[in-house]
């Protein structure tokens, strides 16, 4: 079905994943860290980078596991367990690798890496890749683009939220409640992109 994709197909896949079907705002994946780390710009950029890094790797590796381990051995029903274990192990490995080899990057991403294991966007993208029947290249492109979309929405949201610190909000709406309303408005603006890509 997805044989012989041209460059423009990939471009549409990227635009679709970043703007039209933004993983955070229209697919609702990864909202807990979204509301958790969006208070300061530095933490938000750190989280965004960590997500791009881990999601691209996790998407590719889970695809390989699905194709070469689960399907040949008829273990597709174990997908959930395998994927979450792979993601948890991967996050640990990445953390250890960065700590040894790239201490500066580890300093920047350090505290966000463990949080990513329970970021449902990572597992979500891994599962979407399989359900959509993407091939390996499409999986890599889609995982990366989704992660960029996640980071983009997170950074946008943080920018607005930093401004809200100084505005006067009714007491009962403070914190998560107004955060969700803001996310709703951002989501509405992303809604304008609907229709560019199917």
């Amino acid at each position: 079905m997805h044989e012989a994709w041209t460059f423009s197909d990939y471009l549409l896949l990227v635009i679709g994943a970043i703007l039209v079907n933004n993983i955070l705002l229209t697919r609702f994946l990864g909202n807990c860290p979204f509301l958790g780390v969006s208070r300061k710009m530095e933490t938000a950029t750190g989280m965004a980078m960590a997500v791009v890094f881990v999601m691209t790797m996790a998407g590719s590796i889970t695809w390989i596991i699905q194709e070469y381990v689960l399907i040949p051995f008829d273990l597709e029903y174990m997908q959930t367990i395998f994927f979450i274990l792979v993601i948890a192990a991967l996050v640990q490995l990445v953390e250890m690798f960065l700590q040894k080899s790239f201490p500066a990057l580890y300093q920047a991403l350090g505290i966000f890496l463990p949080l990513i294991t329970t970021n449902c966007a990572v597992l979500g993208v891994a599962v979407i890749n399989i359900r959509e029947g993407y091939n390996f290249l499409q999986t890599v492109v889609f995982s990366f683009a989704s992660a960029v979309g996640y980071g983009f929405a997170l950074i946008l949201f943080t920018g607005i939220r930093e401004q809200m610190e100084v505005s006067s909000i009714p007491d009962f709406m403070k914190g998560t409640a107004i955060g969700l309303l803001t996310a709703g408005l951002i989501s509405l603006s992303f809604f304008g992109f609907a229709g560019i890509v199917e």
């Binding site: 609702f28 009962f172 969700l180 309303l181 709703g184 509405l188």
Partner: peptide, 22 residues
């Protein structure tokens, strides 16, 4: 029932819960 409605609806619910429980 569209995605933006989900965020706004849940945000309002949280606000209402805050008023009730205050």
């Amino acid at each position: 029932v569209k995605p933006p409605g989900a965020f706004i609806c849940l945000g309002l619910f949280l606000g209402i819960m805050n008023i009730i429980s205050r």
